[in-house]
Amino acid sequence: MDYYTAFAISGSGMAVEKLRLDVTAVNIANANSSRGADGTLYRPLRVVTSMRVDPRFEDALRAYGVPLGGVQVDEIRPTDAPPRVLYEPGHPDADDRGYVTVPGINPVTEMVSLMVATRSYQANVVALNAAKFMAQRALEIGGTR
């Protein structure tokens, strides 16, 4: 068994879920930012992934007709959630009527993303540990008791 393929597949899944967690953390951190980095208002970000076709796994592709390459990040895309408007006169960024515009970040959505990323990461760790266990069992073939 080519264990490095199995490790790489689970590793790609863990990396993607960690990125999802990072992006969710950035969204929550900017929930009340009235200014964006480039002058425009911050928009909540979403990680978009697709199945990876890695040239390193061409053997698996040739042998079974399916590219078992794990997962990859296509883009981190801002969503079109409408911004929230808060009444806060005296705020430096308040408009003439005293309203401040902040990103349309829904804490419930972000918390759900957080949970999904955490659980998916755990599942990838389980798969990685299973591969490790199988490799150990394979090494015991022909060994002494």
């Binding site: 597949i9 899944g13 697709s50 078992l68 794990g70 998916s120 599942a123 990838n124 389980v126 798969a127």
Partner: peptide, 15 residues
């Protein structure tokens, strides 16, 4: 089968 299941899990959130 292990690699296929690992690939399914890695792509659990892929549209």
């Amino acid at each position: 089968r292990h690699m296929v299941i690992a690939n399914n899990i890695a792509n659990a959130n892929t549209p």
